[in-house]
Design a protein around this nucleic acid. Structure first.
Lengths: 196, 196
DNA sequence: GTCTATAACGAGATAGAC
DNA sequence: GTCTATCTCGTTATAGAC
């Protein structure tokens, strides 16, 4: 390490702040000024790292997707039955909600009509990755007997994503995590107890 | 009709345009200028009818909730088994999505942290009404035998709302209604075929 | 890499004429 | 009820000094 041992870097700090703001207020609900103020730097400095808001947005969702991919890999690495992987997946959502945030991807999905084409593509890719990972979990759950459901996993995976995203979306106006946890618990219970 | 047989009135026209813009772009994704331009009037005229954007937002969600209540009453009036009422309920969402819109309430739920307190309260009231109506449908479905599920209807109703909202949210980046319809069909099938 | 300064534009809002 | 005109502020973005 020859340079910048000081900290994780301004760029990373910007992404951290912007990410939280987008998840709480939406992409159209925050500004460069918000981020700059929180970091104690100027807006001009932000433009050095990210020329425009859309570029920032792209970096945001890219990093988020990469981190999510890592989290899914960690779940896979932990092993165990598919049912516990599914639970761990739902817990990823819960952790976000605990911090009073919406899933970044869900938030951007709501605003997707106002986003740049590159941002939209990354979002769809992220959703596709979620579906694909879940399909794998559902398949292995059917094999190891920990999950029971009818029809192809490809049909069920989008429902799992949609249910968790929607539960999160609706839970936030109520505050707390109760409403989300109730729905997530039922979703998992239905899949583990031979339902659906 | 002594006056203004010409049309439904400017106020109503403003609400129509603003509603569509919010549902497609979000509350923070449209401006008075957008609405004014589409109606061929000035921003000042908008301010005459709605002093501020939040007042417009309140009127928006209030009218939406009232219309939704009417739609639910119409479903009740049509009679039939609870299962078909549930299907009709899901179709309300589908109609919105067909017009490339997000549920107004779901969109505002995403942005709820940026809204006025009055708007937030109306949104929660709207969600509560949905839950309550669904609880009634679920109860009658258990009675008439058209719906089968475990646990109290009060626990299941939020899941139905969440699943439909989430399916809608995630479907929009993909365009079309296929992803939503697939999830809605499965949700209903699970409840009618003695699952969950 | 961060700053000051400023440009250029858009947004919400108000006053007052018609 | 709608207009023109104006105000104020916020937002994105750029130029150039340090």
């Amino acid at each position: 390490m020859l340079q910048s041992t000081k900290r994780a870097g301004t760029r990373s700090a910007i992404l951290d702040v912007a990410e939280r703001l987008v998840q709480r207020r939406g992409f159209n609900g925050f500004s460069y000024a918000d981020v700059a103020a929180e970091l104690g730097i100027t807006r001009a400095a932000l433009h050095y790292h990210f020329p425009g808001k859309f570029e920032l947005g792209e970096a945001l969702i890219e990093r988020y997707a990469a981190r999510f991919t890592d989290a899914l890999a960690a779940i896979d690495a932990a092993g165990g039955p598919a049912s516990s992987k599914l639970r761990a997946y739902a817990d990823l959502y819960l952790e976000v909600l605990r911090d009073e945030r919406m899933c970044l991807c869900g938030m951007l999905a709501a605003e997707h009509e106002t986003l740049s084409e590159p941002m939209r593509q990354i979002i769809v890719g992220f959703l596709d990755d979620n579906d694909a990972w879940l399909v794998g979990v559902l398949e292995s759950g059917r094999s190891d007997g920990s999950l029971t459901f009818t029809g192809p996993p490809e049909d069920l995976a989008p429902m799992v994503v949609g249910t968790l995203e929607g539960a999160m979306l609706v839970a936030r106006p109520y505050g707390g995590t109760a409403r989300f946890e109730s729905v997530a618990a039922r979703l998992i219970a239905d899949l583990t107890s031979g339902v659906a």
